[in-house]
Amino acid sequence: MSQQLVHVKIIINEKAYEADIEPRLLLVHFIREIAGLTGTHVGCDTTNCGACTVILDGRAVKSCTLFAVQADGKKVLTIEGLAKDSKLHPIQEGFWVKHGLQCGYCTLGMIMAAYQLLMRNPNPTEEEIREGISGNLCRCTGYQNIIEAIKYAAEKMRGGVS
């Protein structure tokens, strides 16, 4: 069939990206292929791994399980938009300081999940952190240092770490 194209405009990291796309295009492919922001990854096809997690209008979503048309007119924050003025965001810093990453493939999703968690709960317990990142799989770290990284970030964001 000749495929209908839809014009969309998605604001990613405060920059507008416009394109005529097939409705079936997944948001993650819009981000990676059209906006060229390859920091967001694809790790599975069943919405389990969370390597594609981005913030859509303030909520963390798995961008492989939304069509890009659904994000038309909305704001997306990806890993590339997190550091400001070439300074790491406290969560990024936490991951660095606490060795919260190894191969780096799941890292962006973990950071975005942590971003969402700390937005809702600035002082999470270890159990709450484990729950908060349970939609994101990591095969390298065993999670323990990721949890440490998020604790570090939480403290720093509350003003506790200089």
Binding site: L101, G104, T107
Partner: peptide, 8 residues
């Protein structure tokens, strides 16, 4: 780590 943390 820096490149991974920045999505690069």
């Amino acid at each position: 780590d820096i490149r991974f943390l920045l999505g690069k």
